[in-house]
Protein backbone atom coordinates (compact mmCIF):
# COMPACT_ATOMS: atom_id res chain seq x y z
CA UNK A 1 0.00 0.00 0.00
CA UNK A 2 1.42 3.32 -1.09
CA UNK A 3 0.36 5.32 1.93
CA UNK A 4 1.53 2.62 4.22
CA UNK A 5 5.18 3.22 3.48
CA UNK A 6 4.97 6.93 4.01
CA UNK A 7 6.23 8.12 7.37
CA UNK A 8 5.48 11.57 8.77
CA UNK A 9 9.01 12.58 7.85
CA UNK A 10 8.84 11.72 4.19
CA UNK A 11 7.22 14.95 3.17
CA UNK A 12 8.68 18.39 3.89
CA UNK A 13 5.44 20.17 4.45
CA UNK A 14 4.55 19.13 7.94
CA UNK A 15 7.95 19.17 9.55
CA UNK A 16 7.46 22.48 11.35
CA UNK A 17 4.11 21.33 12.64
CA UNK A 18 5.40 17.98 13.70
CA UNK A 19 7.47 19.84 16.27
CA UNK A 20 4.28 21.14 17.83
CA UNK A 21 3.06 17.65 18.32
CA UNK A 22 6.34 16.08 19.11
CA UNK A 23 5.65 16.43 22.82
CA UNK A 24 2.44 14.53 22.42
CA UNK A 25 4.02 11.80 20.39
CA UNK A 26 6.95 11.53 22.80
CA UNK A 27 4.64 11.41 25.77
CA UNK A 28 2.63 8.62 24.28
CA UNK A 29 5.66 6.67 23.20
CA UNK A 30 7.51 7.04 26.47
CA UNK A 31 4.50 5.99 28.47
CA UNK A 32 3.62 3.16 26.16
CA UNK A 33 7.13 1.91 26.69
CA UNK A 34 6.28 1.22 30.34
CA UNK A 35 3.84 -1.32 29.08
CA UNK A 36 5.06 -4.05 26.79
CA UNK A 37 1.69 -4.34 25.07
CA UNK A 38 1.33 -1.71 22.40
CA UNK A 39 -2.00 0.07 22.09
CA UNK A 40 -1.74 3.12 19.88
CA UNK A 41 -1.76 3.87 16.19
CA UNK A 42 0.86 6.50 16.96
CA UNK A 43 3.10 3.48 17.54
CA UNK A 44 1.91 1.44 14.55
CA UNK A 45 2.79 -2.16 13.80
CA UNK A 46 1.06 -2.45 10.49
CA UNK A 47 0.58 -0.50 7.26
CA UNK A 48 -2.99 0.57 7.99
CA UNK A 49 -2.27 2.09 11.39
CA UNK A 50 0.86 3.72 10.00
CA UNK A 51 -1.10 5.26 7.15
CA UNK A 52 -3.75 6.42 9.57
CA UNK A 53 -1.10 8.15 11.64
CA UNK A 54 0.42 9.77 8.56
CA UNK A 55 -2.97 10.94 7.41
CA UNK A 56 -3.66 12.45 10.80
CA UNK A 57 -0.45 14.47 10.78
CA UNK A 58 -1.18 15.71 7.29
CA UNK A 59 -4.67 16.82 8.34
CA UNK A 60 -3.24 18.62 11.37
CA UNK A 61 -0.64 20.33 9.23
CA UNK A 62 -3.12 21.66 6.68
CA UNK A 63 -5.60 22.76 9.32
CA UNK A 64 -2.83 24.69 11.06
CA UNK A 65 -2.85 27.16 8.17
CA UNK A 66 -6.28 28.29 9.30
CA UNK A 67 -5.59 28.02 13.01
CA UNK A 68 -2.17 29.56 13.52
CA UNK A 69 -3.37 33.06 12.52
CA UNK A 70 -5.92 32.90 15.33
CA UNK A 71 -3.28 31.93 17.87
CA UNK A 72 -0.92 34.64 16.67
CA UNK A 73 -3.23 37.54 16.00
CA UNK A 74 -5.62 37.30 18.95
CA UNK A 75 -2.97 38.31 21.52
CA UNK A 76 -1.51 40.92 19.18
CA UNK A 77 -4.91 42.52 18.60
CA UNK A 78 -5.76 42.35 22.28
CA UNK A 79 -2.54 44.07 23.23
CA UNK A 80 -2.49 46.64 20.47
CA UNK A 81 -6.13 47.67 20.85
CA UNK A 82 -6.42 47.40 24.63
CA UNK A 83 -8.64 50.04 26.14
CA UNK A 84 -5.81 51.96 27.76
CA UNK A 85 -3.71 52.26 24.62
CA UNK A 86 -4.49 55.78 23.50
CA UNK A 87 -2.13 55.56 20.52
CA UNK A 88 -3.94 52.78 18.68
CA UNK A 89 -6.28 53.63 15.88
CA UNK A 90 -9.98 53.37 16.72
CA UNK A 91 -12.50 52.87 13.92
CA UNK A 92 -15.82 52.22 15.67
CA UNK A 93 -17.89 52.13 12.48
CA UNK A 94 -15.63 49.95 10.31
CA UNK A 95 -17.67 46.86 9.51
CA UNK A 96 -16.80 45.57 6.09
CA UNK A 97 -13.84 44.91 3.88
CA UNK A 98 -14.26 43.06 0.61
CA UNK A 99 -10.78 41.61 0.32
CA UNK A 100 -10.76 40.55 3.96
CA UNK A 101 -14.07 38.79 3.44
CA UNK A 102 -12.59 37.01 0.43
CA UNK A 103 -9.63 35.81 2.46
CA UNK A 104 -11.80 34.73 5.36
CA UNK A 105 -14.02 32.57 3.17
CA UNK A 106 -11.45 31.67 0.57
CA UNK A 107 -8.58 30.31 2.64
CA UNK A 108 -10.65 27.85 4.72
CA UNK A 109 -12.48 26.85 1.57
CA UNK A 110 -9.28 26.00 -0.26
CA UNK A 111 -7.98 24.09 2.75
CA UNK A 112 -11.17 22.06 2.94
CA UNK A 113 -10.92 21.23 -0.76
CA UNK A 114 -7.40 19.95 -0.23
CA UNK A 115 -8.44 18.02 2.88
CA UNK A 116 -11.42 16.58 1.04
CA UNK A 117 -9.29 15.13 -1.70
CA UNK A 118 -6.99 13.63 0.91
CA UNK A 119 -10.00 12.26 2.72
CA UNK A 120 -11.31 10.74 -0.46
CA UNK A 121 -8.06 8.98 -1.24
CA UNK A 122 -7.31 7.73 2.23
CA UNK A 123 -10.84 6.49 2.91
CA UNK A 124 -10.72 4.35 -0.20
CA UNK A 125 -7.17 3.24 0.36
CA UNK A 126 -7.76 2.26 3.96
CA UNK A 127 -11.24 0.81 3.56
CA UNK A 128 -11.43 -1.90 6.23
CA UNK A 129 -13.42 -4.10 3.87
CA UNK A 130 -10.51 -4.27 1.44
CA UNK A 131 -7.97 -7.10 1.76
CA UNK A 132 -4.46 -5.86 2.38
CA UNK A 133 -1.86 -6.71 -0.21
CA UNK A 134 0.75 -9.07 1.20
CA UNK A 135 3.11 -11.85 0.17
CA UNK A 136 1.97 -14.25 2.84
CA UNK A 137 -1.16 -16.37 2.54
CA UNK A 138 -4.18 -14.58 3.99
CA UNK A 139 -5.77 -15.83 7.21
CA UNK A 140 -9.50 -15.92 7.88
CA UNK A 141 -10.80 -15.25 11.35
CA UNK A 142 -14.42 -15.17 12.47
CA UNK A 143 -15.00 -12.93 15.44
CA UNK A 144 -17.95 -13.27 17.80
CA UNK A 145 -18.38 -10.64 20.46
CA UNK A 146 -19.78 -11.98 23.72
CA UNK A 147 -20.40 -10.40 27.10
CA UNK A 148 -17.47 -9.61 27.98
CA UNK A 149 -14.97 -11.44 25.85
CA UNK A 150 -14.09 -12.08 22.24
CA UNK A 151 -14.28 -15.44 20.52
CA UNK A 152 -11.95 -15.90 17.54
CA UNK A 153 -12.71 -18.79 15.23
CA UNK A 154 -10.12 -19.90 12.65
CA UNK A 155 -12.47 -21.65 10.22
CA UNK A 156 -9.70 -22.97 7.97
CA UNK A 157 -7.77 -24.44 10.89
CA UNK A 158 -10.68 -25.82 12.87
CA UNK A 159 -9.60 -24.07 16.05
CA UNK A 160 -10.88 -21.18 18.11
CA UNK A 161 -9.67 -19.03 21.00
CA UNK A 162 -11.08 -16.66 23.51
CA UNK A 163 -9.28 -13.37 24.12
CA UNK A 164 -6.16 -14.28 22.18
CA UNK A 165 -5.84 -13.42 18.53
CA UNK A 166 -2.68 -14.91 17.09
CA UNK A 167 -1.76 -13.94 13.57
CA UNK A 168 1.20 -14.67 11.31
CA UNK A 169 3.28 -11.60 10.60
CA UNK A 170 2.83 -9.98 7.17
CA UNK A 171 -0.36 -11.91 6.44
CA UNK A 172 -3.57 -10.14 5.64
CA UNK A 173 -6.08 -11.20 8.28
CA UNK A 174 -9.68 -11.09 7.09
CA UNK A 175 -12.10 -10.82 9.99
CA UNK A 176 -15.82 -11.50 9.76
CA UNK A 177 -17.38 -9.89 12.79
CA UNK A 178 -20.65 -10.32 14.61
CA UNK A 179 -21.90 -10.45 18.18
CA UNK A 180 -24.23 -12.77 20.02
CA UNK A 181 -25.36 -10.12 22.49
CA UNK A 182 -25.49 -6.31 22.30
CA UNK A 183 -23.53 -4.06 19.98
CA UNK A 184 -19.76 -3.97 20.44
CA UNK A 185 -16.80 -2.50 18.62
CA UNK A 186 -13.48 -4.23 18.01
CA UNK A 187 -10.29 -2.16 17.93
CA UNK A 188 -6.67 -3.23 17.62
CA UNK A 189 -5.21 0.23 17.57
CA UNK A 190 -1.64 -0.70 16.63
CA UNK A 191 -2.82 -2.50 13.52
CA UNK A 192 -5.99 -0.86 12.17
CA UNK A 193 -9.11 1.03 13.14
CA UNK A 194 -12.25 -0.33 14.73
CA UNK A 195 -15.48 -1.69 13.34
CA UNK A 196 -18.79 -2.38 15.04
CA UNK A 197 -20.05 -5.85 15.81
CA UNK A 198 -23.84 -6.15 15.65
CA UNK A 199 -26.11 -9.14 16.25
CA UNK A 200 -27.47 -10.75 13.12
CA UNK A 201 -25.13 -8.69 10.99
CA UNK A 202 -21.73 -9.32 9.50
CA UNK A 203 -19.11 -6.59 9.39
CA UNK A 204 -15.59 -6.96 8.08
CA UNK A 205 -12.16 -5.77 9.03
CA UNK A 206 -8.75 -6.48 7.57
CA UNK A 207 -5.57 -6.15 9.59
CA UNK A 208 -1.95 -6.84 8.91
CA UNK A 209 0.99 -6.74 11.29
CA UNK A 210 4.31 -6.10 9.64
CA UNK A 211 6.31 -6.82 12.75
CA UNK A 212 6.07 -9.37 15.51
CA UNK A 213 4.83 -8.31 18.91
CA UNK A 214 1.89 -8.13 21.27
CA UNK A 215 -0.82 -5.56 20.78
CA UNK A 216 -3.87 -4.71 22.81
CA UNK A 217 -7.25 -5.35 21.28
CA UNK A 218 -10.36 -4.08 22.96
CA UNK A 219 -14.07 -3.44 22.83
CA UNK A 220 -14.78 0.28 22.76
CA UNK A 221 -18.59 0.17 22.80
CA UNK A 222 -19.96 0.09 26.35
CA UNK A 223 -21.86 -3.12 27.00
CA UNK A 224 -22.29 -3.43 30.73
CA UNK A 225 -20.46 -4.29 33.92
CA UNK A 226 -17.60 -6.30 32.42
CA UNK A 227 -16.93 -3.80 29.64
CA UNK A 228 -13.46 -2.75 30.80
CA UNK A 229 -12.30 -6.36 30.96
CA UNK A 230 -13.23 -7.10 27.39
CA UNK A 231 -9.78 -6.78 25.92
CA UNK A 232 -7.49 -9.30 24.40
CA UNK A 233 -3.95 -9.82 23.26
CA UNK A 234 -3.15 -9.76 19.59
CA UNK A 235 0.07 -11.60 19.03
CA UNK A 236 1.81 -11.41 15.72
CA UNK A 237 4.44 -14.09 15.16
CA UNK A 238 6.45 -15.64 12.37
CA UNK A 239 4.76 -18.19 10.14
CA UNK A 240 6.75 -21.02 11.79
CA UNK A 241 5.84 -19.89 15.29
CA UNK A 242 2.23 -19.59 14.16
CA UNK A 243 2.24 -23.20 13.00
CA UNK A 244 3.66 -24.24 16.37
CA UNK A 245 0.99 -22.21 18.14
CA UNK A 246 -1.74 -23.92 16.10
CA UNK A 247 -0.40 -27.28 17.19
CA UNK A 248 -0.40 -26.14 20.81
CA UNK A 249 -4.01 -25.05 20.54
CA UNK A 250 -4.97 -28.34 18.97
CA UNK A 251 -3.16 -30.23 21.68
CA UNK A 252 -4.37 -28.33 24.70
CA UNK A 253 -7.78 -27.11 23.60
CA UNK A 254 -11.28 -28.26 24.50
CA UNK A 255 -14.26 -28.81 22.25
CA UNK A 256 -16.44 -25.91 21.20
CA UNK A 257 -19.95 -27.23 20.71
CA UNK A 258 -23.41 -25.97 21.62
CA UNK A 259 -22.92 -26.78 25.30
CA UNK A 260 -19.51 -25.20 25.75
CA UNK A 261 -20.59 -22.28 23.61
CA UNK A 262 -23.58 -21.77 25.89
CA UNK A 263 -21.36 -21.75 28.95
CA UNK A 264 -19.06 -19.32 27.19
CA UNK A 265 -21.92 -17.03 26.25
CA UNK A 266 -22.96 -16.42 29.86
CA UNK A 267 -22.07 -12.89 30.97
CA UNK A 268 -18.52 -13.30 32.24
CA UNK A 269 -15.08 -11.83 31.68
CA UNK A 270 -12.37 -13.77 29.92
CA UNK A 271 -10.78 -14.63 33.27
CA UNK A 272 -14.07 -15.95 34.65
CA UNK A 273 -14.69 -17.99 31.51
CA UNK A 274 -11.16 -19.39 31.80
CA UNK A 275 -12.11 -20.64 35.28
CA UNK A 276 -15.03 -22.65 33.93
CA UNK A 277 -13.75 -23.83 30.55
CA UNK A 278 -10.00 -23.33 30.50
CA UNK A 279 -7.15 -25.42 31.74
CA UNK A 280 -3.73 -24.69 33.13
CA UNK A 281 -2.18 -25.38 29.73
CA UNK A 282 -3.83 -22.29 28.36
CA UNK A 283 -2.54 -18.79 29.10
CA UNK A 284 -4.32 -16.89 31.87
CA UNK A 285 -7.72 -15.50 30.84
CA UNK A 286 -7.50 -17.34 27.52
CA UNK A 287 -9.32 -20.42 26.28
CA UNK A 288 -8.29 -22.67 23.41
CA UNK A 289 -10.72 -24.80 21.42
CA UNK A 290 -9.41 -27.61 19.25
CA UNK A 291 -12.68 -28.75 17.75
CA UNK A 292 -15.10 -26.19 16.47
CA UNK A 293 -18.45 -26.77 14.91
CA UNK A 294 -17.78 -25.65 11.34
CA UNK A 295 -20.93 -23.60 11.02
CA UNK A 296 -20.81 -21.97 14.44
CA UNK A 297 -20.29 -18.44 13.16
CA UNK A 298 -23.05 -18.76 10.59
CA UNK A 299 -25.35 -20.21 13.24
CA UNK A 300 -24.74 -17.26 15.54
CA UNK A 301 -25.27 -14.88 12.66
CA UNK A 302 -28.31 -16.67 11.32
CA UNK A 303 -30.29 -17.27 14.48
CA UNK A 304 -31.41 -13.63 14.57
CA UNK A 305 -32.66 -13.80 11.02
CA UNK A 306 -34.68 -16.97 11.22
CA UNK A 307 -37.88 -15.13 12.01
CA UNK A 308 -38.34 -16.76 15.38
CA UNK A 309 -38.75 -15.02 18.67
CA UNK A 310 -35.67 -15.20 20.89
CA UNK A 311 -36.80 -15.04 24.51
CA UNK A 312 -34.35 -13.70 27.12
CA UNK A 313 -33.60 -17.26 28.23
CA UNK A 314 -32.06 -17.94 24.83
CA UNK A 315 -30.43 -14.55 24.37
CA UNK A 316 -26.81 -14.45 25.56
CA UNK A 317 -26.17 -11.31 27.56
CA UNK A 318 -29.83 -10.94 28.49
CA UNK A 319 -30.94 -10.87 32.09
CA UNK A 320 -32.33 -14.36 32.58
CA UNK A 321 -30.17 -16.08 29.96
CA UNK A 322 -29.99 -19.83 30.54
CA UNK A 323 -27.22 -21.60 28.61
CA UNK A 324 -28.30 -24.74 26.68
CA UNK A 325 -26.34 -27.03 29.01
CA UNK A 326 -28.25 -25.75 32.05
CA UNK A 327 -31.51 -26.05 30.11
CA UNK A 328 -30.67 -29.66 29.42
CA UNK A 329 -29.89 -30.25 33.07
CA UNK A 330 -33.22 -28.82 34.11
CA UNK A 331 -35.25 -30.95 31.75
Amino acid sequence: MKDGNMTPFSSWRFRPNLLKHAWLLCGVLVLSACNEERNSFLDPAGPIAAAQRTHMFEVIAWTMIAIVPVFVFVPLILWRYRFRNAKARYTPDWEFSGWLDMVMWGVPFVIIIILSSMLWKSTHALDPYKPIASTEAPVNVQVVGLDWKWLFIYPDLGIATVNELVIPVNASVAMDITTDTVMQSILISSLAGQIYAMPGMRTKLHVLADETGTFVGENTQYNGDGFVDQNFQTISMSTEDFAVWVTTVKASGVTLDATTYGRLAVGSTGAQAHETLGSSQMPEGVIYFNQVEPSLFETVLGRYNEGTDIPPAQQPGAVGYVPPSAQGANQ
Binding site: L100, S116, T123
Partner: peptide, 29 residues
Amino acid sequence: GIASMCIAVPTGVKIYDWMATMYRGRIRM
Protein backbone atom coordinates in the same frame (compact mmCIF):
# COMPACT_ATOMS: atom_id res chain seq x y z
CA GLY B 1 -16.85 13.12 5.98
CA ILE B 2 -16.56 15.91 3.44
CA ALA B 3 -19.88 17.42 4.50
CA SER B 4 -18.62 17.43 8.08
CA MET B 5 -15.42 19.19 7.17
CA CYS B 6 -17.36 21.80 5.21
CA ILE B 7 -18.81 23.07 8.49
CA ALA B 8 -15.31 24.18 9.40
CA VAL B 9 -15.47 26.87 6.69
CA PRO B 10 -18.34 29.00 8.07
CA THR B 11 -17.09 28.36 11.60
CA GLY B 12 -13.66 29.63 10.67
CA VAL B 13 -15.22 32.69 9.01
CA LYS B 14 -17.01 33.49 12.25
CA ILE B 15 -13.81 33.38 14.27
CA TYR B 16 -12.04 35.66 11.79
CA ASP B 17 -14.99 38.05 11.80
CA TRP B 18 -14.81 38.38 15.55
CA MET B 19 -11.09 38.99 15.36
CA ALA B 20 -11.72 41.72 12.81
CA THR B 21 -14.34 43.13 15.16
CA MET B 22 -11.69 43.53 17.85
CA TYR B 23 -9.21 44.99 15.34
CA ARG B 24 -9.01 48.76 15.76
CA GLY B 25 -11.41 48.70 18.64
CA ARG B 26 -10.98 49.75 22.24
CA ILE B 27 -11.08 46.41 23.99
CA ARG B 28 -12.19 46.29 27.63
CA MET B 29 -10.97 43.13 29.31
